[in-house]
Deep mutational scan, measured.
Amino acid sequence: RADKQHVLDMLFSAFEKHQYYNLKDLVDITKQPVVYLKEILKEIGVQNVKGIHKNTWELKPEYR
């Protein structure tokens, strides 16, 4: 399990490339446990629960 700041850096870097990611792809990118990753994502992102981007994560507007 990596340092939180290191995980945040990896996530922000990923979100610079694409606006939406599913959790599986973010786990592959960060190599972090799902529960730990979700904890961090809830602080900086929102999970889309409907629409064409259903079940994906994106950054909260203040982090874009």
Rank of each mutant, 00 (worst) to 15 (best):
R1E: 15
R1G: 15
R1A: 09
A2C: 03
A2P: 12
D3L: 12
D3A: 04
D3Y: 10
D3C: 05
D3F: 06
K4S: 07
K4C: 06
H6G: 15
H6W: 12
H6Y: 07
H6F: 13
V7D: 02
V7T: 11
L8I: 14
L8G: 01
L8K: 15
L8T: 08
L8V: 10
D9V: 06
D9S: 11
D9Y: 06
M10P: 01
M10G: 03
M10W: 03
L11E: 00
L11C: 05
L11W: 00
L11M: 15
F12A: 07
F12H: 02
F12T: 07
F12Q: 09
S13Y: 09
S13F: 07
A14Q: 04
A14D: 00
A14S: 09
E16P: 01
E16W: 03
K17L: 06
K17E: 10
K17M: 04
K17R: 12
H18C: 08
Q19D: 07
Q19A: 14
Q19G: 07
Y20G: 03
Y21W: 12
Y21N: 06
N22T: 13
N22S: 15
L23H: 00
L23N: 00
L23W: 03
K24C: 08
K24W: 06
K24I: 07
K24M: 09
D25W: 01
D25R: 05
D25Y: 04
D25E: 14
D25V: 04
L26A: 01
L26C: 00
V27D: 00
V27W: 03
V27T: 08
D28H: 11
D28S: 13
D28P: 02
D28E: 15
D28G: 13
I29A: 05
I29M: 14
I29R: 05
I29H: 07
T30G: 01
K31N: 15
Q32I: 08
P33C: 01
P33E: 13
P33Y: 00
P33S: 07
V34G: 12
V34D: 12
V35E: 15
Y36K: 13
L37G: 00
L37V: 14
L37W: 00
L41M: 09
L41S: 00
L41V: 05
K42S: 11
K42N: 10
K42H: 07
E43S: 05
E43P: 02
E43N: 05
E43H: 03
I44G: 02
I44K: 01
I44M: 03
I44P: 02
G45D: 01
G45I: 01
G45C: 15
V46G: 03
V46C: 10
V46M: 13
N48C: 13
N48T: 10
N48I: 10
V49S: 13
K50N: 13
K50R: 11
K50Q: 14
K50T: 12
G51W: 05
G51Q: 05
I52W: 08
H53G: 11
H53R: 13
H53V: 07
H53S: 10
K54W: 04
K54L: 08
K54M: 11
N55P: 06
N55M: 07
N55L: 04
N55T: 04
T56L: 11
T56P: 03
W57L: 05
W57F: 05
W57R: 03
E58D: 03
E58G: 14
E58P: 02
E58Q: 09
L59F: 02
L59P: 01
K60P: 01
K60G: 03
P61I: 03
P61Y: 04
P61R: 08
P61E: 15
P61D: 04
E62V: 07
E62C: 07
E62Q: 11
E62H: 04
Y63S: 06
Y63G: 04
R64F: 04
R64S: 14
R64L: 12
